[in-house]
């Protein structure tokens, strides 16, 4: 009789353990599902031009003053409305430009921002910061060198 009670207790304990494990697994899956749907920046690349797919065709981080500077931002995830912002700054802290683009991304998308200056960008070091929904995502440094 004593042995029978022990077996019952052991079975109950095992059942509880299995139940707890199942609950943990369920909540872990929920987290993955939620984050999987959210939009996130997966890649930021600099270059002199972009293709029709908005990916950089000519990657570089060193530019001539008369080059256009492109930054291509890859995003993954879907949302009916998200905003991407590119903030370009010069080495002395001056804001060169700040552009925002509203997007409704579906899975993998690419968005490009670019700057240029008709009389040439001043030589020096620059930074472009990318924000997704006003949250800083990634930044890239580049340099403009006079020929």
């Amino acid at each position: 009789m004593m042995q029978y009670s022990k077996r019952i207790s052991l079975s109950l304990c095992l059942a509880l353990l299995v139940l707890a494990a199942a609950c943990t697994a369920k909540s872990a899956n929920d987290t993955v599902g939620t984050s999987g749907a959210a939009v996130k920046v997966t890649d930021v690349t600099l270059g002199r031009s972009v293709g029709a797919d908005k990916a950089i065709a000519d990657k570089t981080e060193t530019f001539a003053p008369n080059d256009a500077v492109y930054v291509s931002v890859a995003t993954d995830g879907s949302s009916p409305s998200a905003t991407l912002r590119a903030k370009w700054t010069f080495e002395d802290g001056q804001i060169v430009d700040e552009s925002t683009r509203a997007i409704a991304p579906v899975n993998h998308e690419r968005t490009e921002f670019h700057i240029s200056k008709p009389d040439g960008l001043p030589a020096g070091k620059y930074k472009v910061q990318v924000f997704l929904n006003d949250q800083a995502s990634e930044s890239k440094d580049f340099e403009v060198k006079a020929r």
Binding site: D53, K54, T75, P80, S81, A82, L84, A86, W88, F90, D92, Q94, I95, V96, D97, S99, R101, A102, I103, A104, P105, V106, E109, R110, T111, E112, F113, H114, I115, S116, K117, P118, D119, L121, P122, G124
Partner: peptide, 20 residues
């Protein structure tokens, strides 16, 4: 001398549609 960025041109485009 302070760098002049007064006539910087900028733009953007995306493979993503714009929100309705």
């Amino acid at each position: 001398p302070k760098a002049d960025f007064s006539n910087v041109r900028s733009g953007s485009s995306s493979t993503a549609a714009q929100p309705a």
